[in-house]
């Protein structure tokens, strides 16, 4: 299965528009030392919602994942982010990938072709892992 679908490439291209937050925020930088990918993520809690900004240096998969994270999790509440985490990890582990019910899962399913490419999972997960670390660091 081709992992470089037009949708992945489109998302990766969209990541070029991502930018850091201008307001004071919690910042976390995570890298993948193997391939050199790096995510710099700013997080700001606004009421019950989470605002995020990112700078991405990475492969197409990492960039696409960052763009999807921005589309689906920016200005959402924490529960929504944890649901995204569950679904992205579920898709990568092929946890019943044929059952695609929610809107969220349909979007996340763009990463289904990665299931058998385990060495690329960290590329898809790096933006999310960075966001989770920022949530842990950010006072509620």
């Amino acid at each position: 299965m081709n992992i470089y679908s037009e949708k992945i490439k489109g998302l990766a291209a969209a990541s070029d528009q991502l930018c850091r937050l201008e307001q004071q925020a919690t910042t976390v930088v995570k890298s993948n030392p193997i391939c050199g990918d790096r995510i710099t993520l700013d997080l700001r809690r606004v009421d019950s919602q989470v605002e995020i900004g990112m700078e991405v240096r990475g492969c197409l998969i990492c960039k696409a994942s960052a763009a999807l994270l921005d589309q689906l999790c920016n200005n959402q509440d924490v529960d929504h982010i944890f649901q995204f985490e569950k679904e992205l990890k579920g898709v990568l582990q092929a946890d019943n990938p044929m059952v695609i019910s929610s809107k969220l899962t349909k979007d996340v399913a763009v990463f289904l072709p990665l299931v058998s490419h385990k060495n690329r999972h960290h590329c898809a997960l790096l933006p999310l892992d960075t966001l989770i670390s920022a949530l842990d660091k950010s006072p509620e």
């Binding site: 992992i3 470089y4 391939c35 050199g36 990918d37 990475g58 492969c59 197409l60 998969i61 490419h117 690329r120 590329c123």
Partner: peptide, 9 residues
């Protein structure tokens, strides 16, 4: 083109 993408192809 990122090296990881290139090596994947």
């Amino acid at each position: 083109i990122h090296a990881h993408d290139l090596s994947h192809v």
